[in-house]
Amino acid sequence: HNGKLCKLKGIAPLQLGKCNITGWLLGNPECDSLLPARSWSYIVETPNSENGACYPGDLIDYEELREQLSSVSSLERFEIFPKESSWPNHTFNGVTVSCSHRGKSSFYRNLLWLTKKGDSYPKLTNSYVNNKGKEVLVLWGVHHPSSSDEQQSLYSNGNAYVSVASSNYNRRFTPEIAARPKVRDQHGRMNYYWTLLEPGDTIIFEATGNLIAPWYAFALSRGFESGIITSNASMHECNTKCQTPQGAINSNLPFQNIHPVTIGECPKYVRSTKLRMVTGLRNIPSIQYRGLFGAIAGFIEGGWTGMIDGWYGYHHQNEQGSGYAADQKSTQNAINGITNKVNSVIEKMNTQFTAVGKEFNNLEKRMENLNKKVDDGFLDIWTYNAELLVLLENERTLDFHDLNVKNLYEKVKSQLKNNAKEIGNGCFEFYHKCDNECMESVRNGTYDYPKYSEESKLNREKIDGVKLESMGVYQILAIYSTVASSLVLLVSLGAISFWMCSNGSLQCRICI
């Protein structure tokens, strides 16, 4: 991952900044910058967002509201009850120091605090018919004063009620008058409520006091790749198909172990950190130390980045220098085999997901714990399936590479015959000098055995068991695999060879 928040398929997220979902939807004055928000790819909250409900109280069923919003990608904020005409018999300019803005008392931008007009609070009834052709999110509140005197001074009615009804919602609220500790300079409380109004449905408000009335509502448009994440990451000019709280993932790998919460087309989250597919040879310690064997393909974004291909070729060293050249036929066979294998694994496992966190309130801790156990169970199954699949494929890959290298080895052996000696570690020792032209003939299969047989015969008789390297004779190393990324691999195959001279070296080696 890149540690950044990015656009998702070209669409920017909605960053709530210092506000949370509650503050944004109710219209906390400190969240005025969010009022123009219309569309987004996903919503970003920060872990310690401080601006929620400015007048103390709870947004009821907040967790369910977050779940609903996680599939919303755009909205239209509109005046559901026009301020100047909807409440002619009531005062609608209630403000509070708890919702101060720029040093002055204020109130929510989407709600109206209705109080008595003169000395009376006549029963009010108002309704709205949803003609938007889509779901409408309606929010309101109920004020709970701290004393009967406060109730009387604001609403005149000691036994007030609030009723809200639609086809799918029907509740009646009565204020709970009680002494409470002071929070944000208030002994009173406000509880906030919401409902989704279906197209064509009607919502009716009736009250004799204590109503925090809707002013603006939201017509919602769903987008199934949307979601809500909690993150401290910063926004950058970048684009992605998959976003996590820790950063964007741009990967076609089937798995990731970065974060379980994802938005967009994302690899499946697994616990494993070692889900690797081999593309090189079986481990040979001396070669492995030099980083030549054991190439791997990573299938977990965050564990290993991208696929690494092994390729086969020849390396030689003689009086004229040293050089490398790919054996294109065996390399292409290996590439085709690995590509098919990788595609097979991805096809089997690479279903892209959006995974969002589930919200539970403080009273639902047991449910949250149960949900976590269920999620953990599914996660263990996914991890096991992934590891088992790759384990089985790896064994076949190792066998496949062994065969490829063996074929190259036999190709060289059949040409050199007794003009060189096998020394048991995949290397041959020449009994004759071999210049670049000679080396090329070994690589392309045109090695002239009779041409060098007499010199080889004489050297075999002279050496008589002495280690060949100390006599200045020449080696050919018969097994060799270097490691390159897919891009470098293609470039390498396009070149005939490249040279690395070893000044004054008397050794001649050709490596497979």
Rank of each mutant, 00 (worst) to 15 (best):
N232Q: 12
M235P: 07
T244W: 04
I249H: 09
S251K: 09
F255L: 07
Q256H: 08
P260E: 02
V261K: 10
V261L: 09
I263D: 10
K268Y: 01
S272Q: 08
L275Q: 05
L275Y: 08
M277I: 09
V278N: 04
G280L: 01
G280D: 09
I296E: 03
I296V: 15
A297D: 00
G298W: 12
F299N: 01
F299G: 07
I300A: 04
D309P: 01
H315E: 06
N318F: 02
G321S: 10
S322A: 13
A326Q: 04
Q328P: 00
Q328A: 13
S330D: 00
N333C: 08
I335C: 06
K341R: 15
K341A: 04
E347L: 05
N350A: 14
A355L: 06
G357T: 11
K358F: 09
N361C: 06
R366I: 09
E368P: 02
E368R: 08
L370P: 11
K372F: 03
K373P: 02
K373A: 07
K373E: 10
G377T: 03
W382Y: 09
L389V: 13
L391G: 06
N394F: 02
R396H: 14
R396W: 15
T397K: 03
F400K: 05
H401D: 08
N404W: 04
N404S: 06
L408W: 07
L408Y: 05
Y409H: 09
Q415K: 00
L416P: 11
N418H: 07
N419R: 00
A420S: 02
A420H: 02
K421F: 10
G424P: 10
G426P: 02
C427P: 09
C427Y: 11
F428H: 11
F430C: 03
Y431F: 08
Y431W: 11
D435M: 02
E437S: 09
M439L: 10
R443Q: 05
N444W: 02
K451C: 04
Y452R: 05
S453K: 04
N459I: 15
R460E: 11
E461P: 09
D464V: 08
D464Q: 14
D464E: 07
M471K: 03
V473S: 09
I476P: 06
L477E: 10
S485D: 15
L489C: 10
L489M: 15
L490P: 00
S492F: 09
C501P: 01
N503V: 13
G504W: 03
G504R: 12
S505V: 12
Q507H: 09
I510S: 00
C511D: 08
